[in-house]
Amino acid sequence: MSAEAGYSTTITINKGHSRTTAGLCALFLGGIGLHKFYLGKPIQGLFYVFFCWTFIPAFIALFEGIRYLMMSDAEFQSRLEQDKLDHIGGTFSVSGITPDTHVKCPDCRGFVPKEAKVCQHCNCKLVPQ
C-alpha cells in the first residue's frame, strides 16, 4: 500500500532504556553485569563479569535492581542521561543544570533554561511551560 492511500510511513525509534528491563536484568542476571551492558556501560559490565566468581557483583546488582524498580520512569531516564544512575542520594549537578532551572528540548533533548524561547542546540522554537 502506498502512502498516498492515507497510510503514514513514519517510523518511531525509542532511544531510551526501559527502567523495568534494567531492573529485571539486574535482579536475575546482574551477577554477570547484564544490566550494565544493557544500559550502555560495557566497562562496568566487564568488571561484573571478571568478579562474578566472588558473588559481590550479584549483591550489588540485587540492590541496583531494587533501586531501578523503585525509581519513577522520569527519574530513571534523567539519571541515565546525566550518567548519574549509579549515584546514591539527591540529585547533584556540577554544571548548574537542575529540574528547577532547565527543561529538555522536545526535538534534540538538550537542556535549555526554562525561560528560553529558542533552543540553543537545535534552534527550534520552545513553548513556555
Rank of each mutant, 00 (worst) to 15 (best):
C25W: 05
G33W: 00
A61D: 08
T101F: 06
S72Q: 12
G30T: 01
R67F: 08
P57I: 01
D83N: 13
F50C: 03
F50D: 02
A22R: 02
E81P: 09
E75R: 07
T101N: 12
M71Y: 15
L27E: 06
W53T: 02
Q82D: 13
F51M: 10
F92Q: 13
G30Y: 01
I56L: 10
D100K: 11
G89P: 09
L69M: 11
H87F: 02
G33S: 05
D86H: 12
S78F: 13
N14G: 13
S72W: 10
P99H: 01
Y38W: 05
C25K: 03
A26G: 09
G31S: 07
Q77R: 15
S78L: 12
L29V: 04
Q77H: 14
Y38F: 10
L69D: 02
K84M: 15
T20A: 12
H17R: 15
D100T: 07
C52I: 04
T98V: 04
S72R: 12
S18L: 03
L24M: 15
F55A: 12
F76M: 05
L29R: 00
E64W: 03
P57W: 00
A74I: 15
S93D: 10
F37L: 04
H102A: 06
E75H: 04
T98A: 01
K41S: 04
F50H: 02
L39F: 06
P99R: 05
